[in-house]
Computed example of a mutant assay.
Amino acid sequence: MASTTVGLGIAGARPSVLGGTLVDITLADGGDDRPSPADRRAWAQWYQGPPAEPNLWVPYDSRGRAAWLDLTPRAWRVPTPQPDRSGGEHHLDGRFVTDVPGLHCAMAEALLGPGRYFGREWNAFKDCLGGGFGVAPPFTLTWHDSEVARRALADGVEHPQDGLSYFEEIVRLLERYGVTVLLQ
């Protein structure tokens, strides 16, 4: 599973109603570092173990998919770094890429397998393309049903000066790093 630090403060202490030397402590909420109630479904699913099949993130809304992405780098414990794989062909299932978190969930699955991490937003994705995360260019990415993402991400613009959609920017970034992108 994964872990997160939850800061709690002691708001008060008094002799316990159970008597003896016991003390009852009242804890104060320490902030919002813990998963929100909306994120609990994803956490509960991951509590069963890392996903062994693709597309388990699909039923979640954007917030749930973002929570899923938050868990991916925490849940996998690899004792020693493995060398990056290059070359070959990867297939991205684009049927469910309807938001930015969904794009990153699907991309990680295509490149590394279910529940894996390969960035959760633009800068992290760019960092992962530089190597050290299991796969590095050059390789071929066949993006099936790419039109779903093209339409869904048409209004999202990462770099306003370019005027390209998030989808177009991701494709351009992949190609700049030496990935052959086949949109189908």
Rank of each mutant, 00 (worst) to 15 (best):
A2W: 14
A2T: 01
V6D: 08
I10R: 07
G12V: 10
S16P: 03
V17P: 00
V17D: 13
L22P: 00
V23S: 06
I25G: 01
T26K: 12
L27R: 04
D32M: 04
D33Y: 03
D33W: 11
D39G: 07
R40Q: 14
R40N: 10
R41K: 11
W46V: 07
Y47R: 13
G49K: 02
P51V: 02
E53T: 05
E53I: 01
E53V: 01
N55F: 02
Y60L: 14
D61Q: 08
G64V: 13
R65F: 05
A66Y: 08
A67N: 03
A75R: 06
V78C: 06
T80F: 14
P81R: 15
R85Q: 10
E89V: 15
H91P: 00
H91T: 15
D93N: 14
D99H: 04
V100G: 02
P101S: 04
L103M: 15
A106Q: 05
E109G: 06
R116L: 00
Y117L: 06
G119F: 05
R120T: 01
R120G: 04
E121Y: 15
A124P: 01
A124D: 13
D127F: 04
D127A: 07
C128Q: 05
G132Q: 00
F133M: 01
P138I: 11
P138A: 02
F139L: 01
F139E: 02
F139S: 02
T140A: 06
D145N: 13
D145F: 05
D145A: 14
E147G: 03
V148D: 04
A152E: 12
A152C: 11
A152Q: 10
L153V: 09
A154T: 03
D155W: 01
G156W: 09
E168Q: 15
I170Y: 09
V171G: 02
L174P: 05
L174A: 09
L174T: 06
Y177T: 08
G178E: 00
G178C: 04
V179E: 00
V179M: 01
T180Q: 10
L183D: 02
